[in-house]
Computed example of a mutant assay.
Amino acid sequence: MRAWKMNGTGNAFLLLDQRAVATPREPDENLVRSWAQQHGFDQLIWLGPDTNSDARLRFWNRDGGEVGACGNGTRAAGWHVMQSDQTQNASLHADGGRLLTREAGPMNITVDMGEPRLDWPSIPLARAMETQKLDFSVEHQGYRVCDPGAVNMGNPHVVFFIDDMDALPIEGLGALIETHPLFPERVNVGFAHIRSPGEMRLRVFERGTGVTLACGTGACAALVAAHRRGLTERTVRIEADGGWLSVDWNTTSNHIHLTGEVEREESVELNWET
């Protein structure tokens, strides 16, 4: 079975298109982990047939766990569907609902990620807490981070605002925070440095994956968390390790729009035996 290696602003994916297969196959956790070892991706993207949209969309992290949302993965999937169907937009049905993608320039795709969820049960948190500024801190190797904002963008995120990105032990901090008891479904961990009201630097430790070159839902969550604290405008350019993303929080619809580059690298053959 052929699949495509792709990336969205450096976020590495393996895309498996089962829309035209008579009996679509879905991988299990062991297969995903095996493919990740062979082909080196952050997330597996699975496309299947859907009666009310252009494709059914599912995601697995490289540890084999299925996740409900992936912003850069949705942009990559949207590009693939638009290329194969020769259209300029695509409707994708994910666990969180319908996601709309459109062309925003050569190899640039925008996705409407819907509304952020901000109440503590929707993050979810283990107990009631104000999500604009969590009463929460962690220390690792002498570095302490505290008071993150919490946002659900189809998956749970916390965002810490820091001054010195380079000195921070992000791998160690991220691993401790991801599995903290406050987060019953684990959590994606963002570290943001605000450069101006319209620009920030962001690194994300993704649950089940680790530090990635970019994280689309993480970028959306960072904008929401920053704007709620009065640190940025509602439109921000975000520099990730893999490049730049643009995020806009629309005042009328309350929806988050994520824009960035995508790239299709090469095709690979998948072995369905573990």
Rank of each mutant, 00 (worst) to 15 (best):
F205H: 15
L16V: 13
R75W: 04
V159C: 12
R102E: 13
S122P: 00
E263L: 09
P197Q: 11
L31F: 01
R56L: 09
V204M: 04
A12H: 11
N108S: 07
L202V: 11
S53V: 01
L14D: 11
D95M: 11
P124D: 13
R62L: 08
L173N: 03
W244N: 05
D42Y: 09
A175D: 07
R25Q: 15
D17C: 08
G40H: 14
Y143M: 03
F183L: 03
I162R: 10
V224R: 06
D119K: 14
L213M: 12
L118T: 01
Q88W: 05
Q86S: 09
T74E: 02
T274E: 01
T101V: 05
M113G: 02
I45V: 15
E206C: 07
G243F: 07
S137Q: 15
W244V: 01
M165K: 12
V67M: 03
N72R: 14
A3T: 04
V21K: 07
D163V: 06
E103W: 08
R56S: 14
Q83H: 10
E199P: 01
D95E: 14
H180V: 01
G73C: 10
G105D: 09
G71L: 04
C146E: 15
W35S: 11
Q88H: 14
D17Q: 07
V189I: 08
C215M: 02
P106K: 08
V189Y: 12
D241H: 01
A22L: 08
D95L: 15
A221V: 00
A214Q: 07
L92A: 07
Q86P: 05
W120A: 09
R58K: 12
G198Y: 08
R186D: 02
T252H: 13
A221T: 03
M82R: 09
R2Q: 15
Y143D: 00
M113E: 03
M153G: 04
L231S: 08
P148S: 00
G218C: 05
D112S: 01
